[in-house]
Design a protein around this nucleic acid. Structure first.
Lengths: 221, 221
DNA sequence: GGTATTCAGTACCGAACAGTATCGCGAGCA
DNA sequence: TGCTCGCGATACTGTTCGGTACTGAATACC
């Protein structure tokens, strides 16, 4: 198995073997944060590739270039690793969304429509396949386990809030032609997003370009 | 464990204990079909309640009032049971849809809209929670396994056909205001259906009454 | 520079479970 | 009535995997 110190960037060949042992130039053990980071990334990958129950901790650890000892040294168990990974991802994604919002203020694009929201999300779910898969696994567990559901609802609340902000900016107080509330629109955005992921991953030929955005556009005209 | 002969309908108390042994009135072993039926129904329940990988064959068999021996006597293994159950359900559901169509011919309801389609499907996914859950499990496995995907696509084709028929009846050749093709509408129907299931099961307060139908209505006006 | 502590690696345990081999009962036929 | 065979029950096996106990090395502290 590949040791972490033999990873792509680190190597023991620089200046330690036989050098004056008083100098503290040796193979540094990777910091706690780096190990945690590797495990979280590997968990996303493995859980996405095999599904939560089918991915073993040995696989996750191996994908991170570590062993199960590292997992139990940094997390309480498989569940804890899963939740930590989800939180980590949600945090990253919220930051990314805020960056996009900052780069594209609504004032600068007066003709912005819900179609843009659709486009952004469509890009997101083709690029972020791993995330989509683990998110649906998250939901799947939330259905059956109260503790998981509580965490899921909490995460979802953040997500709804972010989307609601954007929708309100777009609608700008005007009522929708179909009489949809902002909550309705947010629900449809989330449902269509997840539903189209389901379609797309298994039969992409039926999800035409821009379909998501065009549907959303019909809701606000 | 409950034996199958002590189930709700069958009972050994009628007329056998000590009766003339020449008369063939005794505890009849349930026929092959009945055993199969029980197993398929139990599989739907168990796979829905725990998910495919978390449901054990012992659980399934026990829920059917049988043992694992009955499973392996009727199916090649866990996968085979799963696929048989899915096919069985799809067949049942197509029959049900056709019955509804026969009872409500489109001629009799000229003002029928996509909203009706939405209403029917909304009822379906609140009533048929078990089916929705195993269907999403089906999809989840299809993503990761080529054989499962082939079966999924085949089932999906049947489903798309049934929905497309209905949509064409409703649209009656008229173009949609947003320029959506029939395939587009079918995709949106499926995506919204699955997406709203996801929303509804975990946070029903955000899925307002008739939301599905109202969205679909905006697509056809 | 020696000692304590932290942290990942290693070996191991027990439970769960898919699948198999075998048994025994009941059915149906002669 | 006896014989055979179909079929589900039962007991068992091999493996996988989450979790634990312990080890050894590297760092921090004195």
């Amino acid at each position: 198995m590949m040791s972490i110190v033999n990873g792509p960037s680190a190597s023991g060949s620089t200046a330690d073997a036989g050098a004056s042992p008083s100098l503290p130039v040796r193979i540094r053990r990777p910091g706690r944060e780096a190990v945690r980071r590797r495990l979280l990334d590997a968990a996303l990958q493995a859980f996405a590739e095999f599904g939560f129950e089918n991915a073993s901790l040995d696989q996750v650890a191996a994908a991170a270039g570590l062993t199960k000892g590292a997992v139990y040294s940094n997390f309480a168990g498989k569940d804890d690793l899963f939740f930590a990974m989800m939180s980590d991802q949600v945090m990253r994604r919220v930051e990314a969304v805020q960056a996009v919002l900052a780069a594209n203020p609504v004032d600068a694009q007066p003709r912005q429509t819900l179609q843009d929201v659709g486009r952004v999300l469509t890009e997101a779910f083709t690029e972020q396949r791993d995330w989509q898969l683990v998110y649906l696994d998250f939901w799947r567990r939330a259905i059956r386990d109260d503790e998981v559901r509580a965490r899921f609802v909490a995460h979802r609340k953040v997500l709804r809030g972010a989307i609601a902000d954007r929708v309100e900016q777009v609608l700008d107080g005007a009522p929708t032609p179909g009489g949809f509330t902002v909550d309705d629109v947010v629900t449809v955005v989330l449902a269509l997003s997840n539903g189209l992921v389901i379609e797309q991953y298994v039969a992409p030929e039926f999800v035409s370009d821009g379909l998501f955005g065009r549907v959303l556009d019909r809701l606000s005209d």
